[in-house]
């Protein structure tokens, strides 16, 4: 899977409420979720980002409720990958299940500045900062999770096995 784009940087404890506010959960269509992605954190996010861009954040990304609408909104907005120091557990799980690549790599978070051009190899866990000509190494996903992500998420994966 090819991941390449500009980085948008945010801080710690970005909760699922600011990723997709509860007032928009009356409609779970992807276009609707995408349109309001990160709205309460950065009102301009959806307008300024390009398809394929990445989110780079600090600790405990996606904390709060178990709403799956949060990773869905990020994926539907066109974000190709989220890199953070750490993720809240249910968000992590939901992301893998819906096929949103996420990486835990404090080195990358420290090294990448907003606007840097970044490439990610999901298979090896290698993150390349093209702008700065630096490389960071995240723990690669275990084979099973890679397969989940590349098949397009848990439902597609289950469909291959049932």
């Amino acid at each position: 899977m090819d991941i390449q784009g500009k980085a948008w940087k945010y801080g710690s404890d970005i909760d699922t409420d600011v990723i997709i506010p509860a007032r928009y959960l009356n409609d779970s269509s992807l276009e609707h979720l995408a349109a309001h992605c990160l709205e309460d954190l950065d009102e301009e996010f959806v307008d300024k980002m390009d398809e394929g861009d990445l989110i780079v954040a600090e600790d405990n990304f996606g904390c709060g409720s178990s709403r799956e609408h949060a990773p869905l909104a990020i994926k539907a907005a066109g974000v190709s990958c989220v890199i953070a120091n750490s993720f809240a557990r249910i968000f992590y799980r939901n992301s893998i299940n819906i096929g949103l690549p996420i990486m835990e790599c404090p080195e990358a978070v420290a090294g990448i500045d907003e606007g840097d051009e970044v490439e990610v190899d999901v298979e090896t866990g290698t993150i390349t900062n093209v702008t700065k000509d630096e490389e960071y190494q995240a723990e690669p996903f275990p084979e099973f999770m890679q397969e989940l992500i590349s098949t397009g998420g848990l439902i597609s994966y289950v469909n291959k096995t049932v």
Binding site: I90, R93, N94, N97, I98, G153, V158, T161, V162
Partner: peptide, 27 residues
Amino acid sequence: SHTCTYGALGALATGVGSTDMAAAMAT
């Protein structure tokens, strides 16, 4: 998310999202 309550009985109980629930109902 509060499925973890049943840990008090010595069960491994944990909260997940809706897709996990869907797949689990099937498999």
